[in-house]
Design a binder for these strands. Structure first.
Length: 341
DNA sequence: TACGCGTGGGA
DNA sequence: TTCCCAAGCGT
C-alpha cells in the first residue's frame, strides 16, 4: 500500500478542506440528517434544506413524533422522497429500540431504514468520531484514478475492489478516521473533480496511477444511461367556489410518494370520471411543462375546471398559495406561476 | 443484479 | 439542447 497516503491527505484536509459546512462540528443526529440529504444530492442544494429541517426537528424524539406530512413538507423540492419517509420511520425505531439516540455501531445503523453501508460508515466516523469507512461518489472517483479502477464502478467486481481499498487506506484511530473520511470527500469535491481536476494541487498526485499514465480523463469510466420513452401526463386542477384547489396525497412507494398535488393521470376523461363520476365538466387548458426525472421525461399538461366541492369525495381543498404540505417541485412551479393561457 | 426513485448544476 | 451525475438505498 501507498506510504503515508492517509497522513498526507489529512495534512491537506486540515489546511484546505471544508470545515464550515452547517452539519460539521455538530452531533451524530445532524450527521445522520445531512448524510441522508446528501445522497445523490449536491452540497449547495442541501444546505438550506438542512438548516430548515434541523431547526424544525432538532432531535430524534421530535422527528419521531412529527406527522409524516410535516417531514415531507420540509423535503419538498429535494427529491427522492423515500429518503424522508425512511428517515421518519428510522427515528421511530430509534425511539423504540435505541433509547432515543442513534446507535453507534455499524450493523445497528445499517438495520435502520434508509441507512446503507456508506451512510453508516459516515455516521460512525463523521458523527461519532470512531473508525468508519465511507464510499461515495467522491471516494469512488478518487480511488478509480489513484488505482486505475476501470469498468462500471457500480458493478460488484469494482465495488469489492473499492471497498477493500477504502478500508485499507482508512486509519485505525477514530479521530484520524474522521479526518480521513472528510478528506476523501473534500479531495474528490475540490481537487479530484469530475472535469478539470486540479492535479497540480493534489496532495497524493505522486501516488496517482492515472496521472502517471496521463490518463486522468479515462477514470472513472462513463456509464451509459438508457433512455426510457417519454410520457404524457395530464393534471386536472379542480377549483371550487371559494377558489380552493383539490389536493390529493400521492401513493407511496411511487413518484412523489407521500406528497400532495392536484390529480394527475394519463387521460383527462379518466381523471374526470374517477373524481366526479359521469358528470360532464368543462376544462380549460392552462399550459404545460416538461420535466426530467432520474429515469424518464414527462410532459405535464395542466387543465383547470370549476366544480362544486360537494361533488368530490376525496382529497382536501385549499388555496394553492396557502397549502402547507409537501408539493413536488414542478407541480409547485405550475401552480405558482402566472398563467399565460 | 438491475431498476425505481427527484432535482438542479455544470459542461 | 442534451447529457452526465451529485456525501445511495431498497427491492
Amino acid at each position: 500500500m501507498i506510504e503515508r497516503f492517509a497522513e498526507r491527505l489529512a495534512d491537506w484536509q486540515k489546511r484546505h478542506g471544508r470545515h464550515d459546512l452547517p452539519w460539521q462540528q455538530r452531533g451524530p443526529y445532524e450527521t445522520w440528517i445531512s448524510e441522508i440529504m446528501l445522497q445523490q444530492t449536491q452540497v449547495q442544494v442541501v444546505i438550506p434544506y438542512f438548516n430548515r429541517f434541523v431547526a424544525s426537528f432538532p432531535s430524534e424524539e421530535v422527528l419521531a413524533a412529527a406527522p409524516i406530512d410535516d417531514v415531507l413538507a420540509h423535503w419538498a423540492g429535494l427529491g427522492y422522497y423515500s429518503r424522508a419517509r425512511n428517515l421518519h420511520r428510522a427515528a421511530q425505531v430509534i425511539m423504540q429500540e435505541h433509547q432515543g439516540s442513534l446507535p453507534n455501531d455499524l450493523e445497528a445503523l445499517i438495520a435502520l431504514p434508509g441507512i446503507g453501508r456508506s451512510t453508516a460508515g459516515a455516521i460512525v466516523s463523521l458523527g461519532f468520531g470512531a473508525r468508519g469507512v465511507i464510499q461515495d461518489g467522491n471516494v469512488r472517483r478518487v480511488l478509480s484514478r489513484v488505482f486505475c479502477i476501470s469498468g462500471d464502478l457500480s458493478k460488484s467486481i469494482a465495488q469489492n475492489q473499492l471497498w477493500d481499498l477504502a478500508d485499507t487506506l482508512t486509519p485505525d484511530g477514530g479521530a484520524e478516521s474522521k479526518v480521513h473520511a472528510q478528506a476523501m470527500m473534500d479531495l474528490g469535491s475540490l481537487i479530484c473533480r469530475r472535469s478539470k481536476p486540479k492535479c497540480e494541487a493534489c496532495p497524493v498526485a505522486d501516488d496517482c496511477q492515472a496521472l502517471q499514465r496521463n490518463a486522468i480523463a479515462k477514470f472513472p469510466e462513463r456509464k451509459q444511461v438508457k433512455q426510457r420513452q417519454d410520457e404524457l401526463w395530464v393534471m386536472l386542477q379542480l377549483v371550487n367556489a371559494n377558489e380552493e384547489t383539490l389536493f390529493i396525497k400521492r401513493p407511496s412507494p411511487g413518484i412523489w410518494g407521500g406528497l400532495y398535488s392536484p390529480p394527475i393521470g394519463l387521460s383527462l376523461n379518466q381523471l374526470a370520471a374517477d373524481l366526479l363520476g359521469n358528470e360532464q365538466i368543462e376544462t380549460e387548458y392552462a399550459g404545460a411543462i416538461n420535466h426530467t426525472f432520474s429515469h424518464f421525461r414527462v410532459r405535464i399538461e395542466h387543465y383547470v375546471a370549476s366544480v362544486n366541492a360537494a361533488d368530490v369525495r376525496v382529497g382536501e381543498w385549499c388555496r394553492t398559495e396557502r397549502f402547507q404540505k409537501g408539493v413536488p417541485a414542478p407541480i409547485q412551479h405550475i401552480l405558482s406561476r402566472e398563467e399565460i393561457k
